Deep mutational scan, measured.
Amino acid sequence: MDSLVVLVLCLSCLLLLSLWRQSSGRGKLPPGPTPLPVIGNILQIGIKDISKSLTNLSKVYGPVFTLYFGLKPIVVLHGYEAVKEALIDLGEEFSGRGIFPLAERANRGFGIVFSNGKKWKEIRRFSLMTLRNFGMGKRSIEDRVQEEARCLVEELRKTKASPCDPTFILGCAPCNVICSIIFHKRFDYKDQQFLNLMEKLNENIKILSSPWIQICNNFSPIIDYFPGTHNKLLKNVAFMKSYILEKVKEHQESMDMNNPQDFIDCFLMKMEKEKHNQPSEFTIESLENTAVDLFGAGTETTSTTLRYALLLLLKHPEVTAKVQEEIERVIGRNRSPCMQDRSHMPYTDAVVHEVQRYIDLLPTSLPHAVTCDIKFRNYLIPKGTTILISLTSVLHDNKEFPNPEMFDPHHFLDEGGNFKKSKYFMPFSAGKRICVGEALAGMELFLFLTSILQNFNLKSLVDPKNLDTTPVVNGFASVPPFYQLCFIPV
C-alpha cells in the first residue's frame, strides 16, 4: 500500500510540474494548442506526416506557434517570411542545433551535424575549407563525379535492359564520391566492405524516417530501456565508426604531411598542428563522427533524390523527352556531361530543381535551437528552445509555385524558357546551418541524371499514369515507394 501511495504522489508531482512548466512558459512563447500533461501535443500531431499537421496548425495559430513534445516546448516556423527572418536575418541567433537524443547517444555531441557552439563552428569551418581545397564546386571533385558517372552508366548497362530496382546502384554512385573525398578511394560496386557500408546507410535513412524515431526523440528514456529499431540505428553508426577508425589508422601509418590526399589526411594534419593548443576540438573521436556525418549527409540524401527523380521522369515521359532533346543538342553522344553545360541547359536545370522542390526530401529539416534569449515577432523565446522549420511550407508555397503539388519544371523557367532562380528554393535548409555539401549534391544530381539520360531511355513496367509517387515514409525524410524500371541503351 505504501508503495502505491508513493507512486501516486510521484505521478501527481510530475503532472503538477508539467502543468507549471507549460503555464509559466506560455506567456512568453508564441500561441499554440493546449498541451496535455506529460505528453504535450503529441496526440494532435500525425507522426506519419508531421508536415501536414504543421500546415493545419498554422492555419489556426499563424506562421509562428508553439507545440509541446512531452514536456519540451518547440517553436514552429511556417512559411517563407518566418523562416527567412529566423535563419537568414537572425542567422546567428537561430544557428543552434536542437535536442536530438538519439544523435546524442550516437555521437556524444561530436561531428558537424549535431554539434553546437565553438566545437560546431570550428569543425564546420575546417570541413568547408577542406572540401573547397579539394575542389568542391571546382574541377578536381567534378572529375571524381564524372568518373563515377561513367562507372554508374557501365553498371546500368550490365542490367541488359531487364527490369531492376535502382535503389542499390543509385546509392553506390554518391557513396563512392564521398569515399573518394574521405578515403581517396572508390570501391567496386561488388566489394563486400562497400556493400556493408551501403547497407547500413540505407537502413539508417529508413529507420530515421519512421514514426518510432519521432517518439524516441521526444521521450528519450525509451532509447535506453525499450527495444526497437533505434538500437539497430545505433549499432549501424557504431559499425561505421569502427570502419572509419580502421581507415584512420591506415592513414596514420602512411600519411605524407607534405601531400595530403583526402579529408582524413587533412584532419590528422590539423590534429598535429593543434596538439599544443589544448583542449582542441580536433580529436580522433571528432574525426570519426565528422566522417560519419559526411557519409550520412552525402550519400543517402543524394541517392534518395536520384531514385525519386527517375520515378518522376517515368511518370512524366514528356519531361524526359525534353531533357534528352536538350542533352542531344548541347552535349551530344561523344563526350561526358560537365558542369559548364548546365548554363546552356535551362530546361534540365529546371527539372533538377523541380525534383528537389517537389519531393521535399527533408520536410522539417533537422531541429534548430536559439543560442540566446531572443525577441522574435513580439515573442520571447528562451535560450536553448528547439525550433522546428517547415521546409515544406517554403518549397510548396502556392504563391511562389502555382499548383505546388504538381510536378512542373516551369516553376523554374521564365516566359522565355530561361532558368529562373527562386529564393524559396531551400531543399538544403538556409542560413548558417545550410548543408555543407550543397554544391557537391547539386553537381552530382546534374551529372548523374544527364549521364543516365544521355545513355538510356527509361521504360516503366506499368502505365506511367498508374505510377504512385507518394512517399512511403514522410517523417525525417521523404522516401519514394518501391518501383522497377528498364534502362534501355540509346
Rank of each mutant, 00 (worst) to 15 (best):
L447C: 09
K119E: 13
S180M: 09
F65Y: 14
F187W: 08
Q356D: 03
R21H: 12
V38K: 02
K48P: 11
R139F: 11
T450N: 05
G137D: 15
E288T: 15
F419G: 02
Y424D: 04
L128R: 13
N217T: 10
N231L: 07
F401R: 04
F263E: 03
R144I: 13
G96T: 10
I88K: 05
K383Q: 07
K383R: 06
E92N: 11
G296K: 09
C175M: 13
H344Y: 07
F226K: 03
N202D: 14
L447M: 14
I181R: 00
A106C: 13
F425L: 03
L268H: 04
S127T: 15
L310T: 04
P402Y: 06
G332F: 02
F263G: 04
D89L: 09
T304E: 06
K275I: 11
L17Y: 14
K247Y: 09
R26L: 13
K160G: 12
S220L: 07
D188N: 15
D397E: 07
K315S: 04
V145K: 00
I374F: 07
H184W: 05
K121M: 11
K158L: 13
G431Y: 14
R26G: 13
L102S: 10
N107G: 14
R335P: 03
L362G: 04
A430L: 06
L310G: 02
C372L: 06
K383M: 06
I488L: 13
Y483S: 01
V351M: 06
V472G: 06
L36C: 15
I327H: 00
G416L: 15
P30I: 01
M339V: 11
V177W: 00
E250R: 08
E288Y: 15
S303E: 04
T301Y: 13
R21G: 11
D408F: 02
L57S: 04
K190G: 13
G431L: 06
C486A: 13
Y61P: 00
L71R: 14
F168A: 09
R21M: 10
F401T: 04
L447D: 02
L268P: 04
E354S: 02
T159R: 05
T371N: 15
A161L: 04
S95V: 05
A309S: 14
V83K: 01
I215W: 12
L197V: 08
T392P: 11
D262E: 02
C266S: 15
K185Q: 15
R329S: 12
G137R: 13
L453E: 01
E326F: 00
I50W: 07
D463G: 07
T301E: 12
V473A: 11
E285A: 05
F187T: 03
V319N: 03
Y189E: 00
G475A: 09
N334M: 13
E444A: 04
F194A: 05
F401E: 03
S242G: 13
Y61F: 10
Q192T: 15
Y424M: 12
V292D: 03
S390Q: 07
F239I: 09
N41S: 06
P260G: 10
K206A: 12
N258Q: 12
G117D: 11
S23T: 13
C175F: 15
K28P: 12
L458R: 01
L245G: 15
K322L: 14
G62R: 00
Q193T: 15
V292S: 08
K315L: 01
M426A: 06
V462K: 14
I207T: 07
F407E: 02
V472P: 06
S3R: 01
A321I: 13
L233A: 14
G296W: 14
V5A: 14
F419E: 04
N258L: 12
E81P: 08
R307T: 06
F219R: 03
C10W: 10
L43D: 04
N202E: 10
G91R: 07
S180A: 07
P227Q: 07
L170N: 00
F94W: 12
I112G: 09
K119D: 10
H368W: 06
V472C: 13
F114G: 12
M269Y: 09
P227G: 09
S390K: 05
S115N: 14
Q22L: 11
G416E: 15
N204I: 10
R97M: 07
H411E: 00
E354A: 02
I327P: 00
T320G: 08
P404L: 03
L77V: 13
L152R: 00
H316I: 02
S23D: 12
F295T: 03
G475W: 12
M269G: 11
R108A: 14
P471C: 10
Y61S: 01
S429R: 04
L9D: 00
F126H: 13
Q193A: 13
Y347P: 00
L67H: 03
E300T: 09
K200V: 13
K275P: 09
L391A: 14
V60P: 05
K138Y: 08
F168E: 13
M198K: 10
I88R: 06
V323L: 07
N204W: 04
L131G: 05
T364F: 14
D408T: 09
K273T: 14
F419R: 04
L388F: 11
L54M: 06
L9K: 01
F263C: 14
C486P: 01
P367H: 03
I178G: 01
R125Y: 15
